[in-house]
Amino acid sequence: MTIIRRYWIHVVLILASITFVGPFIWMFLTSLKTYEETIQVPIVWLPEQIQWVNYQIVNEKFPFLTLYFNTVAVVLATVVLQLLIASLAAFAFARLQFPGKNALFIIMLSLLMVPGQIFLIPQFQIIGVRFNLIDTLTALVVPNVFSVFGVFLLRQFFAAIPQELEDAAKIDGCSSLRIYWQIMMPLVTPGLVALGILTMISSWKELLWPLIVNQSIDKMPLSAGLANLIGEHTTYHEQVMAGAVISVLPMIIIFAFFQRKFVESIAQTGIKG
């Protein structure tokens, strides 16, 4: 009985794995073929000769290096600034008393429910037109450093720190700023890591805002740049797939190394608190 059950679980999971990974394998195989092989009917599964040259061609046609540089710069700046700003506020909401705290908290809570596109037109007017930041990397970072979600996530971590620790520090004459930075920040590291990873994933995937605010390709992140790749060069399937491989491989490698951390961070979003 259990053996049959186990057997079925394997069958289902193998099918599921093929469904999820198969497309990527097909992407990789296509990227190694010649154009003639990609349009052969019926399908040829493997290239006769591996065409690494496709990667070279697509890399020459398309500024992957710039796009990667932009993406890394934007993601890093977003993560660092967001962690700092969110942790400051989370500390205040978890640990300090001030008039109007509940009202401000409710404002934040309601912002969390509002769909993002509500803000886009005014944000474009403010950041793009008023501050004249169209076609800059700064424009890609600015709206994302103010994260209400981040405050909610980190607040739980700050709130979980025992009161005695704070009291002892106060008796020693520590200011709030030192309590925040020197005592509490090290203790909420798991929360910071989780938020950092989540922000990294969402900043890495973001598409709509970069499309709106930046038009020239040398100021685009990879996500929006690839959208241009679709528009311009779709004839050569093997080159498009080589481009796709270039754009997914680094993240998959990072994921392979830090899978546990990634999974824990994504799981954090599901904990109610």
């Binding site: 994933i201 890495w204 995937k205 598409l207 990879l222 690839l226 790749l229 796709a244 754009s247 997914v248």
Partner: peptide, 11 residues
């Protein structure tokens, strides 16, 4: 889950 939506679109 970690793949760029743009790449998913192309693929």
């Amino acid at each position: 889950a970690i793949t760029l939506p743009a790449a998913i679109g192309l693929l």
